[in-house]
Nucleic acid binder design. Sequence first.
DNA 1: ACGTTGATGCAACTGACTGGCAAGAGCCAA
DNA 2: TTGGCTCTTGCCAGTCAGTTGCATCAACGT
Lengths: 152, 152
Amino acid sequence: MAKHSHEDQVEQIMDRLAASGKRRTMSRQAVIKVIVDYHGHVSADDIATRVQKDFPSLDVSTVYRTLETLRELGIVERVWFADGSTVYHLSDHKHHHLCCERCGAVQELPISALKNLERFLLDEYGFETHQQPLGLFGLCADCRRSTRGDSS
Amino acid sequence: MAKHSHEDQVEQIMDRLAASGKRRTMSRQAVIKVIVDYHGHVSADDIATRVQKDFPSLDVSTVYRTLETLRELGIVERVWFADGSTVYHLSDHKHHHLCCERCGAVQELPISALKNLERFLLDEYGFETHQQPLGLFGLCADCRRSTRGDSS
DNA sequence: ACGTTGATGCAACTGACTGGCAAGAGCCAA
DNA sequence: TTGGCTCTTGCCAGTCAGTTGCATCAACGT
Ligand SMILES: [Mn+2]
Ligand SMILES: [Mn+2]
Ligand SMILES: [Zn+2]
Ligand SMILES: [Zn+2]
């Protein structure tokens, strides 16, 4: 069904590392696997915790160094949410995030959803927005429904 | 000309502090003055540096504690930009920011500029965005003009 | 003036992240 | 397969923004 399984995707990213002269290591594979499995929405510490279940001696500094390497190659990018938290993301699956402040759910929002805003900013302010994935906070549909008429 | 001078505005905020049972101190006055003078776009460390020109012994922890107090009273709020940096802002002058990545200029954008996006998110996703001042990055009009045709 | 109590300076501490360094692991050539 | 060059890693110390405990200090109501 899926074009690529997660395993294939991890393998493909390892190939890109190798093609750039980087070495295929277990540490890198493990970090990449976590990012692919959760397809984003994970912090560096989440990744470290997750990876250390399989490789207890893998240090958090290795996670950061791997993330930096992947960022240099344009494979992942760092996203800052409007509440100051930060997550890592596969670049080829770029999108914005709608983060529910009540239940914590994170919904993905296609980049195209902000096209109108971008055009408006360019027309009215001459400001050319860069493709910057945003994390917007608010109430998701479910929580909004269950909060209807709730005054507390 | 102006409805309120900066001095008046500082005085008014000090009044609100006093009205909430907080004490009128030089530290608080100095911190508030910096925020009012720069009307936002200052980091906690900017404030500390600025304030210490007049009160060299004023500690950065006092700045943070003052900011927290002002936040509790709804007088200032913290804004996280999409690059992870954070600034403090008067709540009564809420707006978004267009931050130029080339020249560093920060342009203010009325909250109303995102009304259409908010309606779209509510209609299409059932997501109710909270009033969250954003810091969007890109190229300002000036820099875009001076970069035109520049391939490097 | 005075005493209560909140505010401050100082310093130690946290959490996210970075950097140096020596030991270890890929990779490639022989 | 082996050897060795070089990249990568673990460990650990350091940085940076921000927080916290505590003794001292200073508002402010009386
Ligand atoms: Mn995502
Ligand atoms: Mn502003
Ligand atoms: Zn929700
Ligand atoms: Zn500019």
